[in-house]
Design a protein around this nucleic acid. Structure first.
Length: 290
DNA sequence: GCCCAGGCGTCCC
DNA sequence: GGGACGCATGGG
């Protein structure tokens, strides 16, 4: 019998990590749910199926790939249990937000993909973001194919899994304004058209070395990037865990629950994680929250 | 038809 | 520096 991708399995111990909550937390827009406990993830030209299993994750790939790639993606060294000890026992709202979303982790996503997806995110709902990001991948990304995939395509009858990587800067530059508009980007098509001409992969990598403030200013100089998008890229693309994006949901939370101001000082240098808890709780619970 | 979505660029003061 | 306004598109 031939060895296929799905024959290999590697366990990644990661307590308090919930794939479903991360998928719903609005930091990544390309995960594909297989069922409630299993997702297909994508990073550059790699993909893997991940299953929620006991006190960790079961990844359908080799140990080597987990160590070289996915353990960094999940940033396994981050100790959320330790950080949660900072929680103010008198802050009942944040306590509830933590209980509600304690499976959330901040991923280390690709900076370019994070930058683009958050430029496209403005004035869009999360499902709409997913839709246009997927269209962009199919339009300009590299076609990938996993042979011997267990599912059979209902349309063509072939076995295998087809997907498209997120387009690189160079691939994005190949697109015309009309191509971009056809992906459903709306007025953001012009932002991306200009944005992909302002940058190189090397610059994005070099920016890893910058301090938070310097990096934020670099991002703010880009087309279509304001303070909210820049802060999301800091947090989700460069893993700057103190970055605290303020979108409409967080503005509601701050107004409703922290009229005297959020205690940023207390939660340094992990304000971004606590922001994510507030966002997920407020958005998921909608009007039902207490 | 309406309102809203992980906002930003531009104009104006 | 801050406030008002327009912006494309999809979903509820």
């Amino acid at each position: 019998m031939r060895t296929t991708e799905t024959d290999k399995e590697s366990f990644l111990p990661l307590p308090d990590c919930c794939l479903h909550q991360i998928d719903e937390s609005g930091q990544c827009f390309r995960w594909r749910a297989i069922d409630e406990n299993a997702y297909r993830l994508f990073y550059r030209n790699h993909t893997v199926e991940v299953v929620q299993k006991g006190d960790g994750l079961l990844l359908r790939c080799s140990e080597e790939e987990v160590n070289a790639l996915w353990s960094r993606y999940f940033s396994i060294e981050d100790n959320y249990t330790e950080w949660s000890k900072k929680l103010d026992p008198k802050d009942l709202f944040l306590q509830r937000a933590f209980q509600y979303g304690r499976g959330i982790r901040i991923l280390r996503q690709d900076p370019w993909e994070t930058l683009v997806t958050f430029v496209l995110s403005q004035r869009k709902s999360i499902p709409a973001i997913r839709q246009c990001v997927e269209a962009l991948c199919v339009c300009a990304g590299t076609r990938q194919f996993i042979p011997d995939y267990p599912d059979t395509c209902s349309k063509c009858g072939t076995t295998g899994y087809e997907w498209y990587s997120f387009p690189s800067i160079e691939q994005t530059q190949q697109l015309t304004l009309e191509d971009l508009r056809a992906c459903g980007l709306g007025y953001r098509a012009d932002y991306l058209y200009q944005l992909c001409r302002q940058l190189t992969e090397k610059e994005l990598m070099d920016w890893e070395k910058l301090e938070d403030d310097e990096l934020r200013d670099k991002l703010l100089s880009l087309r279509g990037v304001g303070i909210k998008v820049a802060t999301c890229v800091l947090l989700f693309g460069y893993h700057r865990l103190n970055a605290f994006p303020e979108d409409v949901w967080i503005q509601r939370v701050l107004k409703e629950k922290y009229p005297e101001g959020f205690p940023f000082k207390r939660y340094e240098p992990y304000n971004g994680y606590f922001q994510q808890l507030l966002f997920y709780y407020r958005r998921s619970a909608r009007e039902d929250f207490q």
